[in-house]
Structures are given as structure tokens and as C-alpha cells.
């Protein structure tokens, strides 16, 4: 659905994107992650044809963004960082306008508006002026605008930024629902966001792709298979823990807490806990250490930066 090959985008002196390549498959929800200023918005703007690439190729549904911009724009629904709203219009009027300039024929506009209103939960505000709506509702109107013409590809630039937690959950569930039938690419610098909605992520930093893959694999690649244990009467040295059967390493975290490199299967873990009890160390807390995407992200970005600096 999206093919990006060696994309560069230079604004004057600023190299916003420096050689990004990735593809997004049909029907996928892709998370596009990176710290602020990494080049996420710029890449998305190039995908929508809003701004042309400096070099490289971007193809949307087989159409090149430079050669066939109108065909590309027909395929996409786009929610920019700032939702593009006219404060003086009512929600219905606004959506009618959005549908018209997206080429929805007049006789189908009524149905298109009704379905967008319903999907984005705008029923109670549809006669109100956009300018008088709360931030959460405005974001939903922005989302409704992006789906009004039933595009095959949705490009959402930080769809939940600045919303309160309930609104974030609502927007997420709307995105997940929409993503069932369509291709979605969603940018964010907030990781739980992506963890909750996307199957695959691309992480970029300073205009380059630093990691890419299915979320579970990235998580596993982080610090998978470690156990957190807290002991009432810990042994004097962590080595004693590391010598236990099945444990390949142990780090003391202080205050009786340890991080053990233990095998991931349940049988081995059960034996390990029995062992801890048998030795009288008094385990009071044992849990798998979950690696959040946050840690993967931090790790990936810092190692990548260290590498590029070493090369330079």
C-alpha cells in the first residue's frame, strides 16, 4: 500500500528526513514512532503529497506521489498534527464540505456523513459549531474528516496528542475499528499508544529508520525472559542466585530485589521458586519483568546514536 524508498527531505539547511525506506502492507496498522523532531510529520506530509520529496520514491497504492499526486490524494485520508477545522462551520456542514472536496458524489454525501458521525461518536454535537467543541471532540471531527470518503489508506499524525486519558482510549478504539478494514499508519511519540493499536512499528530517529518489526518481536528482543524477585532474607552475594539451576545471571537491584536471567517456560520457573523457598530466602515477590516498548525505544535510539557518533 505504501512503498517508501530512500526518501530524503531537506528544508533549506535542515535535513528532516535522511534516507528512510519502509513498506506498509494492505490492511495493516503501522505505528510510526520517534522522538519529537525525528521526521515523522515530514515523512507523512510527503506521503500525502502535501510536500514533494527532495529525493527518493514514495508510492501509494502504486501511484508515485510526484507523478500522479491527484490519484494519490484520492486514496488517502489524512489527519494532520493540527486538525484542519473551520471554527465557523457546524460539524455536519464541515463534514459535507470535506466529503465534497474529497469527491464524494452529492447523493452519497448524506450517508457518508451519517456513517462518519456514527463511527467517530459525534452524534450529540453534529449541529454544533466546530469552534465551540472541546479538544477531544475536535480531534474526532478531524478523524471523521479523514474517513468521510472511505479511503483505503489513513494517515494519522499524532491522533491523540493533548487529549485526556478517556479521550485517548476512545480515539484508540475508533482507530482500531477503522483499521479492521483499512490500512492505517499512525505516528506517535507516546509508546503505549502504538502498543495498544498497532501490529508493527517503524522507529525513526533524526531522519533515519532505527528499528522496524512486529511489536512482539521488538519487545522480546529487548530484555525478554527475565524475572524480578524480592527476597526477605537474601543471600550475601548475587552469585549464589546465579548458581541456581536454570538461572544464567543475576543482578542485585538492592533492598532484597534481584533481576534474574531465567528460562521463559513455566516448569523451570516453578522449580526455581521452590528452590528459593527451600533455601529459606523467603521470596515475597516473583514476577516476569515486562519490557515496555518504551525501553526498547530508548535502547534502540541510544545505541543507534552511539553508533553514528562512533562512526563520525
Amino acid at each position: 500500500m505504501i512503498e517508501i524508498e530512500d526518501l530524503y527531505k531537506v528544508y533549506g539547511q535542515v535535513h528532516a528526513v535522511r534516507g528512510i525506506s519502509f513498506t506498509v502492507h494492505r490492511g495493516e496498522i503501522l505505528g510510526f514512532l520517534g522522538p519529537n523532531g525525528a521526521g515523522k510529520s515530514t515523512t507523512m506530509k510527503v506521503m500525502t503529497g502535501l510536500t514533494p520529496p527532495t529525493s527518493g520514491r514514495v508510492r501509494i497504492a502504486g501511484h508515485d506521489v510526484l507523478e500522479n499526486p491527484i490519484a494519490v490524494r484520492r486514496e488517502i485520508g489524512y489527519l494532520p498534527e493540527h486538525p484542519p477545522l473551520y471554527p465557523e462551520m457546524t460539524v455536519t456542514d464541515y463534514l459535507d464540505f470535506a466529503a465534497a472536496i474529497r469527491g464524494v458524489p452529492r447523493r452519497r454525501r448524506g450517508a457518508a456523513i451519517a456513517s462518519a458521525v456514527e463511527r467517530c461518536g459525534l452524534g450529540e454535537v453534529r449541529r454544533r459549531l466546530v469552534g465551540n467543541l472541546s479538544k477531544g471532540f475536535r480531534q474526532r471531527v478531524g478523524l471523521a474528516q479523514a474517513v468521510i470518503h472511505d479511503p483505503r489508506l489513513l494517515i494519522l499524525d499524532e491522533p491523540t496528542v493533548g487529549l485526556d486519558p478517556t479521550q485517548v482510549i476512545e480515539i484508540r478504539s475508533i482507530v482500531r475499528e477503522i483499521g479492521q478494514e483499512r490500512t492505517v499508519i499512525l505516528s506517535s511519540h507516546i509508546l503505549p499508544e502504538v502498543q495498544a493499536t498497532c501490529q508493527r512499528v517503524v522507529i525513526i530517529d533524526r531522519g533515519r529508520v532505527v528499528a522496524e518489526g512486529p511489536i512482539d518481536r521488538l519487545l522480546a528482543a529487548g530484555r525478554g525472559g527475565r524475572l524480578f524477585v524480592r527476597l526477605r532474607r537474601p543471600p550475601e552475594r548475587a552469585d549464589e542466585l546465579a548458581a541456581l539451576p536454570g538461572v544464567s545471571g543475576a543482578d542485585a537491584l538492592g533492598d532484597g530485589a534481584f533481576s534474574l536471567a531465567a528460562p521463559p517456560d513455566d516448569d523451570a520457573r516453578e522449580r526455581l521458586v521452590a528452590e528459593l523457598v527451600a533455601r529459606g530466602w523467603g521470596p515475597v515477590e516473583v514476577r516476569p519483568e515486562t519490557t515496555s516498548l518504551e525501553e526498547v525505544f530508548k535502547e534502540v535510539v541510544t545505541t543507534e546514536r552511539a553508533q553514528t557518533e562512533a562512526v563520525a
Binding site: T48, G49, L50, I70, A71, R73, R74, I76, Y78, P80, H82, P83, P84, L85, Y86, P87, A98, I101, R102, G103, Q145
Partner: peptide, 14 residues
């Protein structure tokens, strides 16, 4: 100024 240009410029019209 109100960022609605993005709406118009990503619509399939010239």
C-alpha cells in the same frame, strides 16, 4: 493560519 490549507491541499483537486 488555521491549518485548513492541509485539508484543501490534500484533496484530489488541482
Amino acid at each position: 493560519r488555521q491549518h485548513t490549507a492541509e485539508l484543501l491541499l490534500t484533496a484530489p483537486m488541482t
